[in-house]
C-alpha cells in the first residue's frame, strides 16, 4: 500500500499526563496505520489508553510525543484552529453517551456540523433528511433527545456523525449504553457506513462488536500488544 492509502499513520505516539506529583503514561509509543476504508476495533482493559488514542486520532487531544499524520499530513503540532478545521471537514464522532445537545431537536442536532461548514440551508435540509431516513429516525425529526430511547439517540448521533460525509468515523464504545438489540442495530449501521467506504475506528470492550471490524488492535498499558485480522469479516467480504 502506498502512503496515500493510509488515512492515519502514527509513529511512536506518546501521551503523558502530568499532575503535581505523578506522571502517568497513557500511550507509550504507538505505531498504527489505518488504511482508507478500513474498520478497526481498538480493544483492551480499562485504563489501557484506548480512549486517549481515539481522542488523539480524532484531534480532540494532542500527543506528547511521536508523529501523527492524517491523510498524509503531519498534524502532531497543529494549532487548535487547524485541528477544528480538519475535524469539521473529515471527522465524525459517535460516543457511548450519545452526547446530543439537549436544547436542539433531532434535525437541528444532525444539521449542526453542516452549519459550521457553512452549507446553505436548502442543502442542509436535504442532507439532514437523507441522513434521518438512512438511520430510520425521520419520524422523530422534531423531537428533543430526552424524548428518544437510547437506541434512537445513538442513531441520531450516527446521523450527525455522517451527515457531512466524513472520511473517518471515530466511535467510542458506541453500544456501551444500549441493550443488545439496539447495540446490534447500531453496529449494523456502522458496518453499512464502512461498506459504503467510510473508515471507522471504534473503541470497544465488546468482543461481539469487535466482530464487525476488519482488524482488532489490542492495547495494554499504552502499547499495542497484538493486532489481529478478523478472519470472519474478511471471509464474509470475500463471499
Amino acid at each position: 500500500m502506498s502512503k496515500e492509502d493510509f488515512i492515519i499513520e502514527t509513529q511512536q505516539l506518546e501521551k503523558k499526563y502530568i499532575t503535581d506529583t505523578v506522571e502517568t503514561t497513557a500511550l507509550a509509543g504507538v505505531d498504527l496505520r489505518i488504511a482508507k476504508g478500513e474498520f478497526v476495533a481498538v480493544m483492551g482493559p480499562s485504563g489501557c489508553g484506548k480512549s486517549t488514542l481515539l481522542n488523539i486520532l480524532g484531534l480532540l487531544d494532542s500527543p506528547s510525543g511521536g508523529s501523527f499524520r492524517f491523510l498524509g499530513q503531519d498534524i502532531s503540532h497543529a494549532s487548535e484552529r487547524q485541528r477544528a478545521k480538519i475535524r469539521k471537514h473529515n471527522l465524525g464522532f459517535v460516543f457511548q453517551s450519545f452526547n446530543l445537545i439537549d436544547e436542539l431537536t433531532v434535525e437541528e442536532n444532525i444539521g449542526l456540523p453542516l452549519a459550521y461548514l457553512g452549507i446553505p440551508r436548502a442543502e442542509t435540509e436535504k442532507r439532514v433528511k437523507e441522513a434521518m431516513e438512512r438511520m430510520g429516525i425521520a419520524h422523530r425529526h422534531a423531537h428533543f433527545p430526552q424524548q428518544l430511547s437510547g437506541g434512537q439517540q445513538q442513531r441520531v448521533a450516527i446521523a450527525r456523525a455522517t451527515v457531512s460525509n466524513p472520511s473517518l468515523i471515530l466511535a467510542d464504545e458506541p453500544t456501551g449504553n444500549l441493550d443488545s438489540v439496539h447495540g446490534r442495530e447500531v453496529m449494523s449501521l456502522l458496518s453499512e457506513l464502512n461498506d459504503a467506504g467510510t473508515t471507522v475506528v471504534m473503541v470497544t470492550h465488546s468482543p461481539s462488536d469487535a466482530e464487525y471490524a476488519h482488524r482488532i488492535v489490542n492495547l495494554f498499558d499504552g502499547q499495542i500488544v497484538t493486532e489481529s485480522l478478523n478472519a470472519r469479516k474478511h471471509a464474509a467480504e470475500l463471499l
Binding site: 478545521k85 475535524r87 452526547n99 445537545i101
Partner: peptide, 16 residues
Amino acid sequence: AKEVGLRKVVGANRSQ
C-alpha cells in the same frame, strides 16, 4: 460544557 464540547467536536472553533 457538554454543548461546548460537542460543538468543538463537530468543528466549531473558539471564536465561533
